[in-house]
């Protein structure tokens, strides 16, 4: 829709404006509150905030458990991203460029973990590992996250492929490049934006994931699990500080992602 619509439906616009602003407030006020509390001088998080301090951020640096869990989360995400890309990008290509019987079903199977709550996906993998006698570890978490976020890569890359002129690939074949060379020289460069975008999304999703991690992790904690454990003792300003940092990280990643997906 463009400015014509705006011109045409001013009445609709006014009423939607009020509601829109209210919803944005609903979405952002809690996050703003979280940020505000992370600077609160008082340990009890009551309204209004009376004093300000950076000490919660400083104390994070001394929290060895927390730092270790951040490292774990980063490691898991760093393993999940390449795995989902290596499996997902060619799969998306196959699904959108090869008209084979059952491609719809295959696509549905890939999408299943996106629709089925994480707890069920986690459980099913847990049961499989137990049946095979494999112990739980961060590797099991990597496995679970890959299952869960593979459809994100497949979906985003397939959407980009649908918008791509397939004659461009034929032109490459026509000019003497084989199938593999065409994929590397023409398809991949044109998927750059979608690949970077989905990689960043998978990274943050994996970094923040709770349900699957809860079931599949062994003795190691990831950051969300650490926060989960800390929450048992109630919400503290430290938690708010950690949460603020993750929001900042997400903001940076999404800004990079939006820029990458432009072309």
């Amino acid at each position: 829709m463009n400015d014509e619509l705006a011109r045409w439906s001013r009445g609709l616009r006014r009423s939607s404006q009020l509601l829109g602003v209210a919803i944005f407030f609903f979405l952002y006020a809690p996050i703003a509150l979280l940020v505000a509390y992370s600077f609160s001088g008082s340990r009890s998080l009551t309204f209004p905030i009376r004093s300000f301090t950076f000490s919660w951020y400083v104390s994070l640096a001394d929290n060895a458990e927390l730092l270790h869990s951040i490292l774990n989360s980063l490691s898991v995400a760093a393993a999940v991203v390449p795995l989902t890309l290596i499996l997902g990008v060619p799969a998306a290509y196959a699904l959108s460029r090869f008209a084979f019987i059952g491609s719809g079903t295959v696509n549905h199977i890939f999408t299943l973990p996106l629709m089925i709550p994480g707890i069920i996906t986690g459980l099913s993998i847990l049961l499989l590992l137990k049946s095979l006698g494999i112990g739980l570890s961060l590797w099991a978490v990597v496995l679970g996250h890959t299952v869960a976020w593979l459809p994100v890569v497949v979906g985003q890359v397939a959407a980009r492929l649908r918008r791509m002129d397939r004659y461009v690939e034929e032109a490459s074949l026509d000019l003497g490049a084989g199938y593999a060379e065409t994929f590397l020289r023409v398809v991949l460069p044109n998927l750059k934006g979608a690949i970077i975008g989905s990689a960043l999304l998978v990274f943050t999703l994996s970094f923040d994931e709770v349900a699957i991690t809860f079931l599949l992790t062994g003795t190691e904690n990831t950051l969300p699990m650490q926060i989960w454990a800390m929450l048992r003792r109630g919400v503290t300003p430290e938690i708010c500080a950690v949460a603020t940092l993750t929001v900042v990280m997400s903001g940076i990643l999404i800004a990079v992602g939006v820029r990458a997906d432009k072309d």
Binding site: D165, Y167, V168, E170, A171, S172, L173, D174, L175, G176, A177, G178, Y179, V186, P189, N190, K192
Partner: peptide
């Protein structure tokens, strides 16, 4: 025989230039 093994080249409708 696939296209890349033929000494025949094509000017495509809408050109299909490599956008990147």
């Amino acid at each position: 025989v696939p296209p890349f093994q033929r000494n025949v080249n094509t000017v495509f409708q809408n050109y299909a230039l490599f956008p990147h």
